[in-house]
Nucleic acid binder design. Structure first.
Length: 146
DNA sequence: GCCAACGTTGGC
DNA sequence: GCCAACGTTGGC
């Protein structure tokens, strides 16, 4: 899961322990949270749009999917006029801090590792903020992080 | 349903 | 700030 550290960093997640992953406004990313995640699933926390993009550490899914409350905030940045309480449009999960890496796994390190050739985030033009990884990819990246 | 215009993402 | 690569929007 990507996050811009200027907006919400892995350090902030560690301090807060848990954070609702609100504000996702892409259907594919929403579907991964709503349909593809279970409580306890490991999460790679990736910093994007910063000096050194890369995976900072591990989080974990800390709730089942529930409606993103920001879609109901009239006048707010994430207000969704099409959403109703009965038929929400946007869903999220809570993400909890799980473990630090000894070192961040930089984008450069990800690119250099042949085992990660199929990692979705490395595909040209990938802009999805949430992408699935295989168990093998997770192990590889966690290994690189020490 | 098509598709051009537009907005956003994200590395550099 | 640039720009490639997308996703979304809206007229038709």
């Amino acid at each position: 899961m990507k996050s811009e550290p200027d907006v919400f960093s892995f350090d902030q997640l560690r301090k807060r322990r848990k954070e609702p992953w609100s504000g996702v406004r892409n259907y594919q990313a929403r579907n991964f949270m709503r349909d593809g995640m279970s409580v306890g699933d490991p999460v790679l926390f990736y910093h994007s749009s910063c000096a050194e993009p890369g995976v900072q550490g591990l989080g974990k899914v800390a709730s089942k999917a529930y409606p993103d409350p920001t879609q109901f905030e009239r006048g707010g940045e994430y207000f969704e006029p099409k959403a109703t309480r009965e038929k929400p449009v946007w869903w999220l999960v809570d993400i909890a801090w799980a473990a630090d890496f000894a070192r961040p796994v930089t984008l450069e390190m990800l690119r250099k590792d042949k085992r990660l050739a199929d990692l979705l985030i490395l595909r040209p033009g990938n802009r999805l903020s949430i992408t699935p990884v295989t168990a093998a990819e997770l192990r590889t990246i966690a290994g690189l992080g020490g």
